[in-house]
Measured scan of single mutants.
Amino acid sequence: MAASAHGSVWGPLRLGIPGLCCRRPPLGLYARMRRLPGPEVSGRSVAAASGPGAWGTDHYCLELLRKRDYEGYLCSLLLPAESRSSVFALRAFNVELAQVKDSVSEKTIGLMRMQFWKKTVEDIYCDNPPHQPVAIELWKAVKRHNLTKRWLMKIVDEREKNLDDKAYRNIKELENYAENTQSSLLYLTLEILGIKDLHADHAASHIGKAQGIVTCLRATPYHGSRRKVFLPMDICMLHGVSQEDFLRRNQDKNVRDVIYDIASQAHLHLKHARSFHKTVPVKAFPAFLQTVSLEDFLKKIQRVDFDIFHPSLQQKNTLLPLYLYIQSWRKTY
């Protein structure tokens, strides 16, 4: 089996927390979720979201995140109150960019949308954001926290390059993509939290790379249903696996070995980020709550012996909000 052949990389499970039942964490995340308004986002309300009498641009960002990046939404709820709305805006910006690729039928249209967001970032730093909910909220975040323009532009530029429907040539190319998107998002989150620390940035770099790799793995069944495969070609070739094997949902050992190798790289990034947690300011830990969902996925895929098409991998963990709150309460990542 794939797991038994390579099992030495995987460390002990961390979500089991001995003695936790003896201490009762304060009510927090679930209460916040219940208090949030929840009407559906419609095209009509989106168009009017920044106008008078609408929910408001902040509510639009929150709803977009809740629907399109639920794990990011849950993590954002546990940030300090003064930072929450800015991170909602930042993550909503990322969602807007991420959904361009799947929402257009022609690359030219995707490039036009990316050009809109490039100009939007430029206009935000000229205090002239367009009348668009996410743009307005992002402008507020930039003004409030003096966010670095370079990180925002890196996210747009990398998403634009990724409009080509090509597999990553190697794991390094996937890591570079993750660094310029997910890690950049974390650098900006640290700025919102008021953290300027080399060790925190180092952790953000590795956690962002782990996030990018896990996202690529999780999306494999969806991409396969659209006749697309984006997994690193070098690892596929190493194990003699073709793109057609993934399109046919082949579950042979060599296919699972490909998934094992890729998942192991995410695991190593996560492990390395945690190896120097004592040197990272505690104030930075809330920015890294996504490690909970990353670890949850890596454990699940290990349990199914790296069968990327196993139905259990597509099921939401209903206990994730609780695990996130516990992680926040324990002040760790």
Rank of each mutant, 00 (worst) to 15 (best):
S45K: 04
S45M: 12
V46M: 09
V46E: 05
A47F: 13
A47M: 15
A47C: 15
A49H: 15
G53Y: 13
G53A: 09
A54V: 08
A54W: 10
W55Q: 14
W55Y: 13
G56R: 15
G56K: 15
T57W: 11
D58P: 11
D58A: 11
H59K: 11
C61A: 11
L62S: 06
L62H: 14
E63G: 15
E63S: 15
L64P: 01
L64Q: 08
L64G: 03
R66W: 07
K67C: 10
Y70M: 09
E71S: 07
E71P: 06
G72S: 12
G72Y: 08
Y73K: 01
Y73A: 03
Y73I: 03
Y73Q: 02
S76T: 11
S76L: 06
P80F: 02
A81Y: 14
E82L: 13
R84E: 01
S86D: 09
S86C: 08
V87R: 00
V87A: 15
F88W: 14
F88N: 11
A89F: 00
A89Q: 01
L90D: 02
L90N: 01
R91H: 09
R91K: 09
F93L: 09
N94S: 06
V95L: 08
V95Q: 05
E96Q: 11
A98S: 14
A98N: 05
A98H: 06
Q99D: 15
V100F: 08
D102Y: 06
S103A: 12
E106Y: 09
K107V: 10
I109F: 05
G110H: 10
G110Q: 10
M112V: 12
R113T: 08
R113Y: 05
M114F: 14
Q115G: 14
W117V: 02
K119E: 11
K119H: 09
T120W: 09
V121F: 03
V121C: 06
V121M: 07
V121T: 03
E122R: 11
E122P: 02
E122C: 09
D123Q: 14
I124V: 11
Y125W: 08
Y125F: 14
Y125M: 07
C126N: 14
C126W: 10
C126K: 15
C126D: 15
C126E: 14
D127H: 08
N128K: 14
P129E: 07
P130G: 13
Q132C: 10
Q132P: 04
P133Q: 09
P133D: 06
P133L: 05
V134F: 03
V134M: 07
E137L: 04
E137H: 06
L138K: 02
L138Y: 00
W139G: 05
W139F: 11
K140R: 13
K140E: 05
A141E: 02
A141Q: 00
A141G: 04
V142T: 10
V142Y: 05
V142D: 02
K143V: 11
K143F: 05
K143E: 04
R144L: 10
R144F: 06
R144K: 12
H145C: 10
L147I: 09
K149L: 05
R150G: 06
W151H: 06
L152P: 00
M153C: 13
K154H: 08
I155G: 01
I155Y: 05
I155P: 02
V156S: 03
V156M: 11
E158P: 02
R159G: 04
K161Q: 11
K161D: 10
N162G: 14
N162P: 03
L163C: 11
L163N: 05
L163Y: 13
D164Q: 12
D165H: 10
K166R: 09
K166L: 15
Y168L: 08
R169M: 13
N170A: 06
N170E: 08
E173Q: 10
L174C: 01
L174H: 00
E175H: 01
E175R: 03
N176A: 15
N176C: 12
A178W: 02
A178T: 00
E179R: 00
N180V: 06
T181D: 00
S183M: 01
S184N: 12
S184E: 00
L185G: 02
L186V: 08
Y187W: 10
L188V: 07
T189E: 06
T189I: 15
L190T: 03
E191W: 01
E191R: 04
E191M: 04
I195R: 04
D197L: 01
D197K: 03
H199D: 06
A203T: 12
A203W: 01
A203I: 06
A204Y: 01
A204P: 01
A204D: 00
S205N: 10
H206Q: 04
I207Q: 01
G208M: 01
K209C: 05
A210K: 01
A210N: 00
G212S: 04
G212Y: 01
G212E: 04
V214Y: 04
C216G: 04
C216D: 05
C216A: 12
L217I: 08
R218C: 05
A219S: 15
A219D: 05
P221W: 11
P221R: 14
Y222S: 07
Y222L: 10
Y222G: 06
H223Q: 11
H223K: 07
G224K: 12
S225M: 14
S225T: 14
S225A: 14
S225G: 09
S225P: 08
R227K: 12
R227L: 12
R227A: 09
R227G: 10
V229Q: 06
F230T: 11
F230W: 11
L231E: 02
P232N: 00
M233P: 02
C236Y: 01
G240C: 11
G240H: 14
G240P: 01
G240W: 03
V241H: 02
S242A: 12
S242N: 05
Q243T: 09
E244W: 04
D245M: 12
D245C: 12
D245P: 01
F246W: 09
F246Y: 08
F246G: 03
L247S: 04
L247V: 12
R248C: 06
R248Q: 08
R248A: 06
R248P: 03
R248V: 08
R248I: 09
R249L: 11
R249W: 10
N250V: 14
K253V: 14
N254C: 15
N254Y: 15
N254T: 12
V255I: 12
R256M: 05
R256S: 07
R256F: 03
Y260A: 07
D261L: 06
D261G: 08
I262K: 01
I262V: 14
A263R: 00
A266Y: 00
A266T: 02
H267S: 09
L268P: 01
H269G: 02
L270A: 02
H272R: 08
A273Y: 01
R274C: 02
F276T: 06
H277Q: 13
K278G: 15
K278L: 14
T279Q: 13
T279Y: 09
V280P: 02
K283Q: 14
K283F: 07
A284N: 00
A284P: 00
P286E: 04
P286K: 06
P286R: 07
F288Y: 08
L289Y: 10
L289Q: 08
Q290H: 09
V292E: 03
L294H: 04
E295R: 07
D296R: 07
L298C: 05
K299I: 10
K300M: 12
K300W: 05
Q302H: 09
Q302Y: 06
Q302T: 06
Q302G: 06
R303H: 12
V304N: 06
V304K: 04
D305L: 01
F306K: 01
I308R: 04
I308C: 08
I308V: 15
F309V: 01
F309I: 05
H310P: 03
H310V: 01
H310F: 01
H310K: 00
Q314V: 06
Q314S: 10
Q314W: 08
Q315W: 11
K316I: 12
K316L: 11
N317V: 05
N317H: 11
N317T: 15
T318L: 13
T318K: 06
L319T: 10
L319D: 03
L320K: 02
L320V: 07
L320S: 04
P321I: 04
P321F: 04
L322Y: 10
Y323I: 15
Y323C: 12
L324I: 13
L324N: 04
I326Y: 14
W329V: 09
W329G: 04
W329I: 09
K331I: 10
T332I: 11
Y333T: 00
Y333Q: 01
